[in-house]
């Protein structure tokens, strides 16, 4: 029921996203543009449709990977944008961009490096990977990767720097059909995670119980984590590090799915979040063209504060 409501909300926001912009379309104008021809149709099909779909796919990736990380580490703070994975992917992407290599590869390399570094830093000789250590070390990693990226930009030429700066804020500006084609590559990677709801649910029972239920815990964790990292880094390569989309999508999805880790719901929540933020970015102050990521940060930061607040109250002696 709630999931259906979330899906409807996403659809509604998507329709609004197609209608909104420098010149707003009414519902009938939008229908005409979608199924007819003319100036409006060209604008909608060449600009708004690829932008919307790329945003939806990127949001879905962020949402999924947020939920999987939060679930695997049993910590609502352990999302890729809090533990520095997004920032490292952005660093990799910027490096690749400046070196003239494919951006997605750079983002994947950066994200992969972040996962390895965090796993190494947070590994405990006896208890395996400690979620609390991942979150705290990730905090440091996020700052480090962010600073390194800023330093790179300052060394880049002015033309590169301006482009990279906007992109680093998280933006869908300039996204067209080629970018959407790149985004479609992520869909097959999303599929296994979309179907992993049961596995996640069982893993949350604890490793021993999950093992008793017949799951190969270690391999499952590694596989799910690797896929989630690829998705988050892939989404960063599309639209820059949209702050806190992954963080907020997880809890929203849980709320909608009555406490269960439902991947489909998380993907929907992420998609709805980016669509909403992009709608705001294009509606308010279109002249300044603020990065979409600024709006996700403004909406998502209170979620982060709430998560920290709840967690520290639970941990408090």
């Amino acid at each position: 029921m709630r999931i259906a409501a979330l899906a409807l909300l996403t659809l509604f926001l998507a329709a609004l996203g197609l209608a909104a912009g420098r010149n707003w379309l009414t519902l009938s104008e939008l229908a005409q543009a979608l199924f007819g021809s003319g100036a409006d149709a060209r604008m909608v099909w060449n600009l708004r449709v690829p932008r919307l779909l790329t945003g939806v796919i990127a949001g879905g990736c962020f949402g999924l990977s947020g939920l999987v990380f939060q679930s695997l580490l049993r910590n609502p703070l352990a999302s890729p944008d809090v533990v520095g994975l997004s920032q490292s992917a952005a660093l990799g992407a910027v490096l690749a961009l400046l070196a003239g290599l494919p951006v997605t590869l750079g983002a994947w390399a950066g994200g992969g490096a972040a996962v390895l570094i965090l796993a190494w830093l947070a590994a405990h000789p006896r208890h395996g990977i400690e979620p609390r250590a991942v979150v705290l070390q990730g905090l440091g990693l996020a700052i480090l990767a962010g600073a390194a990226t800023e330093a790179l930009i300052l060394r880049a030429s002015d033309g590169d720097a301006g482009m990279v700066m906007t992109w680093l804020g998280g933006t869908l500006n300039g996204v067209g059909w080629p970018e959407l084609a790149r985004a479609l590559w992520l869909l097959p990677l999303m599929l296994p995670l979309l179907l992993a709801g049961r596995a996640l649910d069982r893993l949350e029972l604890g490793d021993d119980l999950a093992h008793a239920l017949g799951l190969r815990v270690g391999a499952l964790r590694a596989g799910l984590g690797a896929l989630a990292a690829l998705l988050a880094a892939g989404a960063v390569s599309l639209c820059g590090p949209m702050a806190f989309v992954a963080l907020a999508a997880g809890p929203v999805a849980r709320l909608a799915a009555y406490g269960r880790p439902s991947p489909v719901t998380a993907a929907l929540a992420g998609a709805a979040f980016i669509t909403l933020a992009d709608l705001l970015a294009r509606s308010f102050a279109p002249a300044a063209l603020l990065p979409t990521g600024l709006y996700t940060a403004l909406i998502g930061a209170p979620v982060l504060i709430l998560a920290v607040w709840r967690q520290t109250r639970r941990d408090a002696p």
Binding site: L304, I305, V308, T312
Partner: peptide, 12 residues
């Protein structure tokens, strides 16, 4: 918890 809470507040 302090650095976490601080980071959340600072990012807002």
């Amino acid at each position: 918890r302090l650095p976490l809470a601080g980071a959340a507040f600072a990012s807002l």
